[in-house]
Amino acid sequence: MVRLIDLADGQEGRLVRLEGERAFRRRLMELGLLPGTTVRIVRRAEIGGVIELEVRRARLTVRTSEASLVLVTP
């Protein structure tokens, strides 16, 4: 199990667990990031500190700090 941000660009992972406070976990789940869901890293912006994901065919950008609270299996 690794943190989502440790995946390489273009790599997919299966979501295992969400950490962080409730509002954050609930929001991610409501956007479709539930345990068991496949997440792919599209690209990341080092300067901007954000990371673009693909979940259920939808694109979503989250902060690197927040993506580190998402645990996946590659």
Binding site: R27, L60, V62, R63
Partner: peptide
């Protein structure tokens, strides 16, 4: 305000 996770759509 409450800390809101950034959610951007491209």
């Amino acid at each position: 305000g409450p800390r809101v996770p950034l959610l951007l759509e491209m």
